[in-house]
C-alpha cells in the first residue's frame, strides 16, 4: 500500500509540468497580460518545454509536446501542426544543447534559450508567412520573444526548486 501511494505521489508530482503544458495549450488561459501592461506577454509553453527537455526529457516527452502543439493550434485557430513544429524545434535545440553541454548553469541555459526562441519563432514565422494567409504583428511577436527570454531565469528558479521535490530517475 505504501509503495502504491509512493508511486502515485511520484507520478503526480512528476506529471505536473506536463499537465501545466497541456492545460496551457488546452485552456483559454494565456500569458498575455495586456490588461495590466500593454506589451507584456510571454510564452510559458516554450519555457516549460525548453527547461524540462534540457534537464530531464522523461518529464515531458516529444510525443506529449507534439500533442500539446496540436491542441494549441486547434484552440488558437492556427493551421494544424504549426505549434507542434515550433515546440519540437525548441525541444530539438534543448536536446542538442544537452548533448553538447557539460556544465549547466542558469547563465548557459538562459543564453542557449535565446537560440531556442530564435529558431522556434523563425520556424513559426516561415510557416505562417509562406503557407497561410494569417496576419501577424511582428512587434507583438518580438515583445513576446523578449519577455519569454526575460522571464526564463524566474521560471528556471521555480522549476529548479520544484525539481528537487520530484522523484526523477537519472535522465536517459
Amino acid at each position: 500500500m505504501a509503495i502504491i501511494y509512493k508511486n502515485f505521489k511520484a507520478s503526480v508530482i512528476n506529471s505536473l509540468p506536463l499537465l501545466i503544458l497541456y492545460y496551457l495549450s488546452l485552456s483559454e488561459i494565456d500569458t498575455h497580460f495586456s490588461n495590466m501592461f500593454e506589451i507584456l506577454s510571454f510564452n510559458l509553453q516554450i519555457i516549460i518545454i525548453y527547461y524540462w527537455m534540457l534537464k530531464n526529457s522523461s518529464v515531458l516527452g516529444n510525443g506529449h509536446i507534439f500533442f500539446a502543439g496540436i491542441i494549441n493550434d486547434v484552440v488558437m485557430g492556427l493551421p494544424l501542426g504549426i505549434s507542434s513544429i515550433s515546440y519540437l524545434t525548441v525541444s530539438f535545440v534543448a536536446s542538442y544543447i544537452r548533448q553538447v553541454t557539460v556544465n549547466i548553469s542558469l547563465f548557459t541555459d538562459w543564453f542557449t534559450f535565446l537560440l531556442a526562441i530564435f529558431f522556434s519563432n523563425m520556424v513559426y514565422l516561415i510557416l505562417i508567412l509562406n503557407f497561410s494567409d494569417l496576419q501577424i504583428s511582428y512587434v507583438d511577436m518580438s515583445y513576446n520573444a523578449f519577455f519569454t527570454f526575460l522571464f526564463y531565469p524566474l521560471i528556471w528558479t521555480v522549476f529548479n526548486f520544484y525539481k528537487k521535490i520530484m522523484f526523477l530517475r537519472a535522465d536517459d
Binding site: N62, P79, L80, G81, L88, S132
Partner: peptide, 21 residues
C-alpha cells in the same frame, strides 16, 4: 521512455501542417 524520435514527430507535424494547409 519515449516512443517516438524527434525527427519522426517533426515530420509528422510537417505532414499534418501541409495536409491542413
Amino acid at each position: 521512455r519515449q516512443k517516438f524520435s524527434l525527427v519522426f514527430l517533426l515530420f509528422l507535424a510537417i505532414i499534418i501542417f501541409l495536409l491542413d494547409i
